[in-house]
C-alpha cells in the first residue's frame, strides 16, 4: 500500500453520442499521495461522479490517462473499490455473503471468506446483521455493508460517490465518523465525491474544487487542523474562511444541471430487444 499514488494527466471524458455528446470533465491534472483523504467538491452535474467512474474503470477517458501506481487504469478492479450513492448490494445474497463476494471472486474457500467478511462486518458495526437480507437493513446500514464489501478486498484506493448523500443528517454525521474511524485503521487512499462543503471540510485532508460543466479543477485546497479539532459547525476561523472560499467558488447562481453517474449518463429509457 506504500506506493499508492493516483495521478490524472490531462484527462477529459466525453459522454453521450453524436450531436448530444458533451465534455463532462475537461483537462484534469492532479495527483494524490498514498493514504490521502481527498474530497472532490463541485456543483451537481459538474462531472465529479464521472471522474470517479473513470477512476473506478467504468468509464474510459476520451483524452489523457489515469494512473494508479504508475499503471494506467483500464477497466474495473478490486484494487479500486467503489461505494455508490445508493447501495449495490445483491438483493439475493445475505449481508455476510455480499461482503464476502469479492473474496469469492478471488477463489477463497467458504470458511475463510466468511471469517474475513465477519471481521469486516464487525468493523462497520453490522456483526449482528450477517444473516439479514439487504432489504431488511436501513439506508445507513446498507451503506455500512457496501463499505465493508469494498474494504474486504483491501483496495489501494477507496472511491466514494456521495455515499452519505441519501441519508438523513443524523445518520450522515454518524457515518462520517465511522468512515474516519475505519480510515484511521486501513489508511487507504480515499477519493470522496460530495457537493456538501461541510462534509468535504470535515473529512478531507485536501479538497479539489470543480467548476460547473465541463468540470475543470478550479482549486486545490489543503484543509488545516487535525480532524479532532474540526467541529460539525465549522466554527473555527480557519475552516469558516475556507468554507466561504468554497461557497464563492461554487457559484450557487449557476443553472442546475441533471446529475451524472459514475456509469455515464443517467439511465435512460432503452427499448427492449423484444417488443411485446
Amino acid at each position: 500500500m506504500s506506493h499508492s499514488h493516483l495521478r490524472s494527466e490531462q484527462v477529459s471524458i466525453r459522454l453521450g453520442e453524436g450531436e448530444q455528446a458533451f465534455d463532462a470533465v475537461l483537462g484534469l491534472d492532479f495527483s494524490i499521495e498514498p493514504g490521502q483523504f481527498v474530497c472532490i467538491l463541485g456543483p451537481s452535474g459538474c462531472g465529479k461522479s464521472t471522474l470517479l467512474g473513470a477512476l473506478a474503470g467504468h468509464l474510459a477517458p476520451s483524452q489523457g490517462v489515469l494512473y494508479l501506481d504508475g499503471e494506467p487504469i483500464v477497466g474495473p478492479s478490486p484494487q479500486r473499490g467503489m461505494v455508490f450513492q445508493h447501495h449495490t448490494l445483491l438483493p439475493w445474497r445475505r449481508v455476510l455473503d455480499n461482503v464476502a463476494f469479492g473474496l469469492k471472486m478471488q477463489g477463497l474457500g467458504r470458511a475463510e471468506r466468511q471469517a474475513q467478511a465477519r471481521e469486516m462486518l464487525d468493523w462497520v458495526g453490522l456483526a449482528e446483521f450477517a444473516r439479514h437480507w439487504p432489504r431488511q437493513l436501513s439506508g445507513g446500514m446498507q451503506q455500512r455493508a457496501e463499505i465493508a464489501r469494498v474494504l474486504v478486498n483491501r483496495p489501494r484506493v477507496l472511491l466514494m460517490d456521495e455515499p452519505f448523500g441519501a441519508l438523513d443528517a443524523l445518520t450522515r454525521a454518524r457515518m462520517q465518523q465511522l468512515l474516519l474511524g475505519i480510515w484511521a485503521r486501513v489508511r487507504t487512499t480515499v477519493v470522496f465525491v460530495t457537493h456538501d462543503i461541510d462534509e468535504a471540510l470535515l473529512l478531507g485532508d485536501r479538497v479539489l474544487v470543480m467548476s460547473t460543466r465541463p468540470g475543470r479543477l478550479i482549486a486545490d485546497l489543503p484543509v488545516p487542523l487535525m480532524r479532532s479539532e474540526r467541529q460539525p459547525g465549522l466554527e473555527h476561523p480557519a475552516l469558516a474562511a475556507l468554507k466561504r472560499q468554497c461557497l464563492a467558488l461554487l457559484h450557487p447562481e449557476h443553472r442546475p444541471l441533471p446529475r451524472l453517474t459514475p456509469l455515464g449518463l443517467p439511465p435512460d429509457f432503452t427499448p427492449s430487444k423484444i417488443a411485446l
Binding site: 473506478a56 474495473p76 449495490t88 445483491l90 471472486m105 469494498v150 430487444k273
Partner: peptide, 28 residues
C-alpha cells in the same frame, strides 16, 4: 429476455469492480 435486460446496470458494474468475471457475472 426482459428480466435480463432489467437487471440494474449498477449491480453489474459493482460486481465487476469487486472482481467478477464474465461467468461469475452471469451466475451471481
Amino acid at each position: 429476455v426482459h428480466g435480463v435486460e432489467a437487471v440494474d446496470p449498477r449491480l453489474v458494474a459493482s460486481a465487476k469492480g469487486l472482481g467478477a468475471g464474465r461467468w461469475a457475472l452471469l451466475r451471481e
